[in-house]
C-alpha cells in the first residue's frame, strides 16, 4: 500500500531521486565517458583515447597555473574575509543607534549577482570617468585594471568587498549565541577587551568560524562571474581560475574531451577533501 510509511518514504523521495539520476548520476558518468574519448565541439564522431586527455591536461602548464591561482585566491580571500567579518560582527555585537537599518545595508552586497558586481566595479575603475580612478589620481596614483602586478590584489579586494558581509552574517549569528555574561565576567576580572575576545570568545565560536571558512572557501574556489566579466581571466592567464580554464577549453577551444578530463581531475581533487569536511561539519 502506498499509504504505509514504508512505501511513503520512497514515494516522497522519488522526485528527488529521479531528478538526481537525470541531472547528477547520468551527467557524471557522461563526463567520465567524454574524458576518455577524443571529442571536439560540433563533431559527432569520437574515438576512445584512454587516458590521453588526462595526460594532456596534466602536462599543461596553463592548467596548473589556473589551479594554483584558484587555490591562492580562495585561501587569501577566505582568511581576510573571516578577519574582517569577525571585526564587523564585534562592532555589531554592541548596541548603538541605527543598528537595524545599518544591518540591512551591510547585508545588501550578498544579494547582488557577482556578474553585475563585476560591471559595477568596471564602472568605478574605468580609466575615463571612474570614481576610483579620479580619487587615486588626486593621490597621484595611477591604476590600470590590466596591470599584471596589480590585477590579482585588485580581484582580492573586490571579492572582499562583496563577501565580507557573508562571513559577517555567519559569525554575527554565532556571536549572538554567545552568553553576554562571558564578555562581562571577563571585564569584571579586569581583563582587557581584546584579551577577552581572543582567549574566551574566539574558542567558543571556533566551529562557526570553520563553517564560514568552508562555505566561503568552496565558493571562492568556483569563482567565475566577477573575474570573467572584469578580466576574462587575463591579462594572459594571470587571473584564470579553474572554472574559467575549463569553460574556455570546452566552449572557446571546443576541446570537449580534454575539458571533461580537467573537470574530472578537479572533482576528484575535491572528493578527496570530503571526508575531512564531513567529519568536521557533523560534529
Amino acid at each position: 500500500m502506498v499509504y504505509s510509511e514504508k512505501a511513503a518514504k520512497w514515494v516522497l523521495s522519488f522526485p528527488l531521486l529521479l531528478f538526481w539520476v537525470v541531472m547528477v548520476v547520468f551527467p557524471a558518468g557522461y563526463a567520465i565517458y567524454l574524458s576518455l574519448h577524443d571529442v571536439s565541439m560540433g563533431q559527432g564522431m569520437s574515438s576512445f583515447s584512454g587516458f590521453g586527455n588526462y595526460l594532456e591536461i596534466l602536462g599543461d602548464a596553463d592548467f596548473w597555473h589556473s589551479i594554483g591561482f584558484t587555490l591562492e585566491f580562495a585561501l587569501i580571500t577566505t582568511v581576510l574575509e573571516l578577519v574582517f567579518g569577525f571585526l564587523l560582527a564585534l562592532l555589531f555585537n554592541r548596541s548603538f543607534p541605527g543598528k537595524r537599518p545599518l544591518l540591512s545595508m551591510v547585508l545588501l552586497p550578498i544579494m547582488v549577482a557577482p556578474s553585475l558586481m563585476g560591471i559595477m566595479f568596471r564602472l568605478i575603475l574605468n580609466e575615463n570617468n571612474g570614481v576610483a580612478t579620479y580619487f587615486l589620481s588626486l593621490l597621484h596614483i595611477q591604476i590600470n585594471l590590466f596591470d599584471p602586478d596589480l590585477v590579482v590584489p585588485l580581484m582580492i579586494v573586490l571579492d572582499i568587498m562583496q563577501w565580507v558581509p557573508f562571513t559577517f552574517l555567519i559569525i554575527y549569528s554565532g556571536l549572538q549565541g554567545v552568553d553576554p555574561g562571558l564578555f562581562e565576567a571577563a571585564s569584571v576580572d579586569g581583563a582587557s577587551y581584546w584579551r577577552t575576545v581572543l582567549q574566551i570568545i574566539l574558542p567558543v565560536i571556533a566551529p562557526i568560524f570553520f563553517i564560514a571558512a568552508f562555505l566561503r572557501g568552496i565558493d571562492a574556489f568556483r569563482t567565475f562571474d566577477v573575474i570573467y566579466v572584469l578580466t576574462n581571466g587575463g591579462p594572459g592567464n594571470v587571473t584564470k581560475t579553474a572554472s574559467i580554464y575549463i569553460y574556455e577549453a570546452a566552449f572557446k577551444s571546443g576541446q570537449i574531451g580534454q575539458a571533461a578530463s580537467a573537470s574530472v581531475i578537479v572533482a576528484v581533487f575535491l572528493l578527496l577533501l570530503i571526508p575531512f569536511f564531513v567529519k568536521r561539519l557533523s560534529k
Binding site: 557522461y30 568552496i218 575549463i246 569553460y247 570546452a250 575535491l270
Partner: peptide, 22 residues
C-alpha cells in the same frame, strides 16, 4: 544529506559540459 553536501562542494562548471551536450 551527505550526498547533497558533497554536491555542494563541486564547482558547477564540472557539470557544464555534460549538460551542454545533453
Amino acid at each position: 544529506l551527505t550526498l547533497s553536501m558533497a554536491l555542494r562542494l563541486f564547482p558547477p562548471i564540472v557539470f557544464a559540459i555534460p549538460y551542454y551536450l545533453m
